[in-house]
Simulated assay, not measured.
Amino acid sequence: MSPTLAPSVIRTNTVVVGAGQAGLAAAYYLQQRGVDFRLLDAAAAGAAWAGRYESLRLFSPAWVSGLPGRPWPGNPLHYPTRDETTAYLRDYAAHFGFPLDLHQRVTRVGAAPEQAGYEISTDSGRTYLARRVIIATGPYTAPRVPAWAGRLPAATAQLHSRDYRRPSQVPGSGPVGVVGSGNSALQVAADLAATGRPVVVAFDEKTAALPNNQLMWLFLVLTGLLRVPRHTALGRRLSRRPDPVVSGDLAKLRQFSNVTFIGRAEAALPSGAIQGQKGVSPPLEGVVWATGYQPDYGWVDLPVFEPNGAPRHRRGLTEVPGIAFLGLNWLDTRRSALLHGAGPDAKRVVGELLKMP
């Protein structure tokens, strides 16, 4: 007879780490299959969205942004805001009554001692024992900034777009720089420019720009371009290309008279200026780095990573039985890191995991 487990030890079939869109979609399909599971999050459902900048809007309309089993409420043509996205995810978790354990930051996932399965430890002192673990914390974890960012003087305030919420976070009223060539860089720069202060944008002029309208999304859905698998020849070619930015957002930013584009950032100068391919900024009072993220899975004590720290998987499934990832860029297709792709990826990964003994 097995000894009685202490209250701080919870045994379950599957643990899902992360209650963003990927983790919630996994929870939906686990629930549909009648699997005993726990959904863990360091804060709350949708917390990653709640922590983004206030002016954020989804790049996809509501009709292609819903999770399985619960369409987005309201106008399907609407592009949801940050707060609307957070509310939708929290409502989704509450509607289905998932076994959601909040404020459980996972500190280690490793092999369970002296038994099959895995041991998941949290900073609250809880331990979960599970046969399967789905890691759905997403790709937006550790901010990445250029190595030369440290050359800026201490007087130049610096923050990453992950920590940017509103213009008032950047002190002063003089020039501020935004470095990056993605959609977040354009939205943050426009947010700052709307205050009237000078904004210098270090943006790679070679970045592709596409319209973001209902017709484009209808085209992407009907042609299946968002569903091209990464492991095909076309998928490999597409995955190597940088993501395009929204042409309307780029055009809007160029209309601000207080915005200057200097091309892709190349270096920082001791004066507090940034050298771009097309010009040099004036000394900056602050810089927002919209320069992406890098993997941060130091808490996963399992042999499932490439030398660069990225998860090693095929379509979300790893070589370690019972361990899978969800919500990564190009986990399977272009839509994998979007709300649009959370459901299909979760359905497939959960189905494959449950085939394992």
Rank of each mutant, 00 (worst) to 15 (best):
S2E: 10
P7I: 11
T12I: 00
T14S: 02
V15E: 01
V16D: 01
A25Y: 01
Y28P: 01
Y28L: 01
Y28S: 02
Y29V: 01
Y29W: 12
Y29N: 00
Q31A: 03
F37I: 00
R38Y: 04
D41C: 07
A44R: 14
G46L: 03
W49G: 05
W49V: 08
A50T: 11
G51Q: 15
R52S: 04
Y53D: 03
E54G: 03
S55H: 10
L67I: 01
G69K: 07
R70N: 03
H78S: 00
E84G: 05
T86L: 14
D91W: 11
Y92H: 02
L100A: 07
D101H: 11
H103A: 06
Q104S: 13
Q104I: 05
Q104L: 04
T107F: 11
G110D: 08
E114R: 15
E114Q: 12
A116L: 07
A116C: 06
G117Q: 06
D123W: 06
S124T: 15
G125D: 07
G125L: 05
L129S: 02
A130N: 04
R131M: 01
A136G: 04
T137F: 02
Y140I: 03
A142M: 10
A142R: 15
R144N: 13
V145L: 12
A147G: 13
G150N: 11
G150F: 09
G150A: 09
R151T: 08
R151P: 01
P153H: 13
A154I: 06
A155F: 05
Q158F: 12
Q158Y: 08
L159K: 13
H160F: 14
S161D: 13
S161I: 12
R162G: 11
D163T: 13
S168D: 15
Q169H: 12
V170Y: 05
P171G: 11
P175L: 06
V176L: 13
G177H: 09
S181V: 08
G182V: 02
N183W: 11
S184Y: 14
S184C: 13
A185W: 13
Q187D: 15
T195E: 07
T195H: 06
V201C: 02
F203S: 10
T207R: 15
P211N: 11
Q214W: 10
L215A: 15
V221D: 09
V221K: 14
L222N: 12
R227H: 10
R227D: 15
P229D: 09
R230I: 08
L234E: 10
R236S: 08
R237Y: 09
S239W: 03
V245G: 12
V246P: 04
L250W: 12
L253G: 07
S257D: 13
F261L: 07
A265S: 14
A267T: 13
L269G: 04
L269H: 15
I274Q: 05
Q277H: 14
G279Y: 08
P283W: 12
L284D: 13
G286W: 07
G286T: 07
V287Q: 09
V288A: 10
A290D: 11
T291W: 13
G292C: 08
V300N: 05
L302G: 08
P303W: 12
F305D: 02
N308M: 04
A310C: 03
G316V: 04
V320P: 01
L326D: 01
G327N: 10
G327V: 06
N329Y: 06
D332S: 07
D332N: 09
A337K: 08
G341T: 05
A342V: 02
P344R: 08
P344Q: 08
V350S: 00
V350Q: 00
L353N: 02
L354T: 00
P357F: 03
